[in-house]
Design a protein around this nucleic acid. Structure first.
Length: 378
RNA sequence: GGAGAGGUAGCGAAGUGGCUAAACGCGGCUGACUGUAAAUCAGCUCCCUACGGGUUCGGCAGUUCGAAUCUGCCCCUCUCCA
């Protein structure tokens, strides 16, 4: 087993009234204070944003994707460039998802076996095969700071039998991946699966913990289940995870979900939601959800969100943003992406402050009451 | 003045006797979006007191059981020649 030289999690403060925790993740000399929200840059770019934009937003770590970079430009090219950081000119921490989510999202194009997953490339239909070992090898080539185990993200609902079978296979895949992971400058996280079954979630978390990963992810959430179920999945998973390692709730980025996750002891979140909805004209603001494309904003010369300090809100009006969207101008997508990301970064920043003072639950209530978001949480 | 071509819903453009309130595209309006096949996708877009009804395809008058589609006259636009 390899020993990482410079990766560890330090619990800075445990909230007295909930499981919320303030922590410090040392990622090979780069510091990430948790809870943290990680913007998603699937294809080695947070769509429409430069690395400089990402830093200005206050994001301290971002995501990228193994499956997509494997197809294009190919891990060899990224390795040849000197690794993902150099390739995309981003020196902050990068976490790569293993391709496990594509097992779910590209369901029409794949077949799962014990050995691995057969994909039909979504780009040109080429037959592809990815084993857990391949995913780890690719991630080592990419040189991300944190790699993920290759898992199967199952849909919801799923039967107990299938969920159990899949989860056990995911455990075997986790072991196979871990056995061949050799980079000392890259952490590796295991992923808890088990659907909405308490027994399976707990078993999975325990087994992964035995394998001693550098951190643990909670996968298989936000795939169609209701909120209460998602929160239960988180509780079941965290119940058996060690407190001295970071916990990452994969793919979750709605405001109420982030707050509920933090309350339950989650340290890391990532989600395409803020950037995707931004590109589609939807914003998270202190007034609630706004769709900038609506005609009422055509002559609204107020800033998007008067309480926000981002580049978009400080410099541009709703009328201008509406105009940019009506004309399909890329600047609109960039500015709105900046805003939504900044909104979530500020949300978790506020959570950290609150945890420090043991008032996380009050903070959560304050946020949920203040912003008029519906059940979806944005 | 002469010779052609054409006028269809906000715009462009199909349709050339019934299956047409009228394809399709754009524009407009409203939604959706949670480890990114996503600058994407879905619905609506003549009027109304709306599981029904009322008016449409430059205008008017005809032919026909039935017309945006056929006939006549009129109005308008574009191209070429003088």
């Amino acid at each position: 087993m390899i020993k990482l030289k410079n990766f560890n999690y330090t619990l800075l403060h445990q909230d007295k009234n909930s499981k919320a925790r303030l922590g410090k993740l040392n990622v090979f000399g780069k510091e990430v204070i948790t809870p943290v929200f990680m913007p998603v840059g699937t294809k080695a770019t947070v769509k429409f944003l430069s690395p400089e934009d990402i830093k200005k937003i206050g994001a301290s770590i971002i995501l990228s994707n193994t499956y997509h970079l494997w197809l294009r430009p190919g891990n060899e090219i990224v390795a040849k460039a000197g690794g993902l950081h150099k390739f995309m000119n981003y020196d902050g921490p990068i976490l790569t998802d293993s391709g496990g989510f594509q097992v779910f999202s590209l369901a029409d194009f794949r077949k799962i076996s014990e050995e691995g997953v057969t994909f039909k490339s979504h780009l040109d239909g080429t037959k592809l095969f990815m084993r857990p070992e391949d995913s780890i090898k690719i991630q080592m080539d990419l040189g991300s700071d944190i790699a993920m185990s290759f898992d199967e993200c199952i849909p919801y609902p799923a039967t107990y039998d299938y969920t159990k079978k899949s989860m056990e296979r995911t455990l075997r895949w986790a072991k196979r991946g871990k056995d061949m992971h050799t980079r000392e400058d890259q952490a590796l996280f295991g992923i808890v699966q088990g659907g909405d079954f308490e027994k399976l979630r707990k078993y999975c978390a325990k087994e992964l913990t035995k394998m001693d990963f550098d951190g643990y992810s909670i996968g298989g959430t936000s795939v169609g289940e209701d909120k209460a179920t998602m929160y239960r999945m988180i509780d079941y998973s965290i119940a058996e995870l060690p407190s001295d390692k970071p916990r990452y709730l994969m793919g979750v980025g709605a405001i109420n979900d982030i707050l509920n996750g933090i309350e339950r002891g989650v340290d890391m979140f990532d989600c395409v939601l803020p950037t995707r909805i931004a590109r589609h004209g939807t914003l998270m603001t202190s007034e609630g959800r706004i769709n900038i494309k609506r005609q009422i904003y055509k002559d609204d010369f107020r800033p998007l969100d008067s309480e926000c300090d981002c580049e978009c809100c400080k410099n541009y009006t709703r009328a201008y943003l509406n105009h940019l969207f009506r004309n399909n101008e890329g600047l609109g997508m960039r500015l709105l992406s900046i805003h939504n990301l900044r909104f979530l970064v500020r949300l978790v920043e506020g959570a950290r402050e609150a945890i420090k003072e043991d008032r996380f639950l009050e903070y959560k209530e304050y946020i949920l009451n203040k912003y008029h978001f519906d059940e979806r949480g944005f």
